[in-house]
């Protein structure tokens, strides 16, 4: 399979606080030395808890944010430092679906306008051609052309997310970055949207970067998964390897914390002590050391390197 996207040692910090002279005094280290590859046609998921940098990573890929250092390769082109003008045509191939469907649709635009906007930017189609595509897309995402003239507030959350998906599909992208696309939706609607995403992937050979905190959803949809903690990728592996044989103690704890909807299922739960540390002052050693039950002296002193423990299974931990 072809590599479509590749991140190499990407880091991003955000300044916080200001000194008298307006200089930032502290930095939030949101993404630290993140590297991974995404192959064509696969679903690559980034999982982690709030504040782990998964959304920032998604925004860096789409260049909604500019990384401080590192390289981002998309379709054989290095995009981490190019200007927004150079980036714009590339976004035709790289679209995004956001978490909050209500907040990501302009409330003053009709559905047809929302969906055709990417076509106005990226193509020279006539209005008739555009409307044809809009109606076609509405059908594909499970709405109908009678919805085209309505405004976003007339739709339910699940329907709004379908509009968001239709908008992302208008320019036939090869890569879709979906940032928690179903977490704002009700349980019965989540399944509908997940199934839609799955069908679209088969139909259009889409590549997904799927950002989520829900490990049961990620297991269903992904081919490969990266687990993030405190801005670091701690483990990357194909789905089956990760769920059957989690290597990093954090992945293990995360998996064991997921409540299973089956009262007969009894499992050993690893309860992590304490909270996620602040990303302003990163720990010197392993980012997870403070909460890890297997922590050893070197974990506090030295940051672990990423190692390939079995083919395709990368982990950053001193235990391996």
């Amino acid at each position: 399979m072809e590599k479509i996207l590749s991140l190499k040692n990407v880091s991003k910090t955000f300044p916080v606080g200001k000194s008298l002279l307006g200089q930032p005094t502290k930095f939030v280290h949101a993404v630290n030395n993140v590297s991974f590859d995404v192959y064509e046609g696969e679903t690559f998921s980034i999982v982690g808890e709030s504040g782990c940098g998964k959304s920032t990573t998604g925004r860096l890929i789409n260049r909604l944010l500019t990384p401080d250092s590192g390289e981002i390769w998309f379709q054989g082109k290095e995009i981490s430092k190019i200007s927004q003008d150079e980036m714009r045509p590339l976004r035709k191939d790289m679209q995004m679906i956001f978490q909050d469907p209500a907040g990501s649709l302009n409330p003053r635009m009709r559905v047809s306008e929302l969906i055709e906007e990417p076509l106005l930017i990226h193509t020279n189609m006539t209005p008739q051609e555009r409307m044809k595509i809009v109606n076609e897309l509405l059908g594909i995402v499970g709405l109908s052309d009678k919805h085209a003239q309505r405004y976003p507030h007339e739709f339910s959350g699940g329907q709004k997310q379908r509009i968001g998906i239709a908008r992302a599909l208008t320019v036939r992208p090869s890569l879709i970055i979906a940032d928690e696309p179903i977490s704002a939706l009700d349980v019965s609607i989540q399944a509908q949207v997940l199934n839609l995403l799955h069908n679209l992937q088969e139909k259009y050979n889409l590549t997904y970067v799927f950002i989520s905190h829900d490990l049961s959803v990620v297991e269903m949809i992904s081919d490969r998964i990266a687990v993030m903690y405190l801005g670091f990728v701690v483990e990357t592996a194909p789905k089956d390897m990760l769920y059957k044989n989690p290597l990093h103690p954090y992945t293990e704890a995360l998996l064991s914390a997921v409540p299973i909807p089956d009262p007969n299922y009894k499992k050993e739960r690893i309860i992590l002590e304490g909270d996620i540390p602040s990303t302003i002052n990163l720990p010197k050693g392993c980012p997870f050391a403070a909460r890890c039950s297997k922590c050893r002296p070197e974990c506090l002193e030295q940051r672990p390197e990423q190692k390939e423990v079995e083919p395709g299974h990368f982990v950053s931990c001193h235990l391996y």
Binding site: A191, L194, L215, M220, P261
Partner: peptide, 24 residues
């Protein structure tokens, strides 16, 4: 029945979930 079926279960290995059509 629909609600229970539409929740992905860790370790179940399904790709497509049965879902309840429509909305509340």
């Amino acid at each position: 029945q629909g609600l229970i079926a539409s929740v992905p279960k860790l370790g179940s290995g399904v790709k497509v979930l049965p879902s309840i059509p429509g909305s509340v």
